[in-house]
């Protein structure tokens, strides 16, 4: 057990170390792409708290991401750089508030209902920015001047990379600590058997609502970073394609593991770049969704435990059933 924990920590530390070295070696384009990936990793981690941590399959996570992004742009002054110290908390707070509202209603439902209701509420947010002048309609709006934090200008690719890097680590550590706390353990209990938790004396609704709100806040943080990076927002940020994509990320990585969300985000972005690559697929790269869709289908069929479970899946062939039983246990475990 301890041995296993250590190897997990080493693995995660290796990822973060690699990310710390990358900007010194990579190109401007590469740095930019890795920044995007780290933003998606934050986003994926927010969903992992719900799906892996609490057992709530939210299919409308993009709404919180989008609201964070729109808040960042809408609250930025038009001609001067905004202050990160104001914009970031504001974006996180707005996303958290919408999550509180959506969670309060959707958590009255369970299972498939919950999936559909969260999707529908995300769609509601989508229509608000899509149909009204508030968010610039289908074209979206632009952030003309990037915000600053003291001497740090987030308009600079390197600066944004490091800020994103630090925030990703902060979110990861926060969630890792959270999952070991009494709150996190209670969420894990709810995931496995909510009825039992209620019989034990836990009022589960406030727990789930708190998790949902925290998750929305983290997604909002991701949205803020995304808006700053792109300098523009449009309704697609709230579309269900993004909600679906982030679900694919955590599934691809492996549900129930924080590091799964990290790996999943990277794998997803790489896959996307691969299928979009004209050098490899030529004309066909226009239809990259086809490759993505088939990969998703294949991964559901072949990788039920995600990339994180892959070593175990291989080990299974070698070691037989005992490993598999232990590994199945592992899947249900919410630990990073």
């Amino acid at each position: 057990m301890t041995n296993n924990d250590t190897s997990k920590s080493v693995f995660v530390a290796a990822i973060f170390a690699a990310l710390a070295i990358y900007p010194f070696t990579g190109s401007e384009f590469g740095t930019d792409l890795v920044t995007t990936t780290m933003v998606f990793a934050i986003f994926a981690l927010s969903l992992e708290l719900l799906v892996g941590g609490t057992g709530l399959v939210c299919f409308g996570q993009a709404a919180f991401f989008g609201i964070g992004a729109y808040s960042a742009v809408l609250l930025s002054p038009q001609y001067d750089p905004g202050s990160v110290a104001i914009l970031l908390p504001a974006a996180v707070l707005t996303a958290a508030l919408y999550a509180l509202f959506v969670g309060a209603l959707s958590l009255r439902t369970k299972g498939v209902y919950f999936i559909m209701v969260t999707l529908a509420f995300a769609q509601m947010a989508y229509f608000v920015v899509h149909d009204t002048s508030l968010g610039g309609g289908t074209d979206g709006i632009y952030m003309t001047v990037k915000p600053t934090l003291g001497a740090i200008d987030l308009g600079d690719t390197q600066a944004l990379y490091w800020v994103t890097y630090v925030l990703l680590i902060a979110v990861f550590v926060f969630l890792a600590v959270l999952s070991r706390s009494r709150f996190g353990r209670a969420l894990a209990g709810i995931r496995v058997n909510e009825q039992r938790m209620r019989a034990t004396g836990f009022s589960t609704y406030p727990y789930k609502l708190a998790a949902f709100t925290i998750s929305g806040a983290i997604a909002g943080l991701g949205g803020f970073l995304f808006a700053v990076k792109d300098g523009a927002v449009n309704p697609e940020l709230m579309s269900w394609h993004l909600s679906g994509s982030v679900l694919v990320m955590i599934i691809l990585g492996g549900i129930g593991h924080l590091r799964g969300a990290l790996i999943g985000a990277f794998a997803f972005v790489l896959l996307e770049e691969l299928f979009k690559s004209e050098a490899i697929f030529g004309e066909f790269s226009k239809h990259w969704h086809l490759g993505l869709g088939m990969t998703i289908i294949a991964s559901v069929a072949l990788l039920p435990r995600g990339l994180v479970g892959l070593p175990g899946q291989w080990g299974q062939h070698l070691l037989g059933r005992a490993t598999r039983r232990a590994e199945d246990m592992e899947v249900q475990n919410a630990k990073a």
Partner: peptide
């Protein structure tokens, strides 16, 4: 449900691209 959601989501992408 999660896997159902994913696989059928994958199918949507495939149908749309086809």
């Amino acid at each position: 449900h999660l896997q159902q959601v994913l696989m059928t989501y994958g199918l949507i992408l495939v149908f749309e691209e086809l």
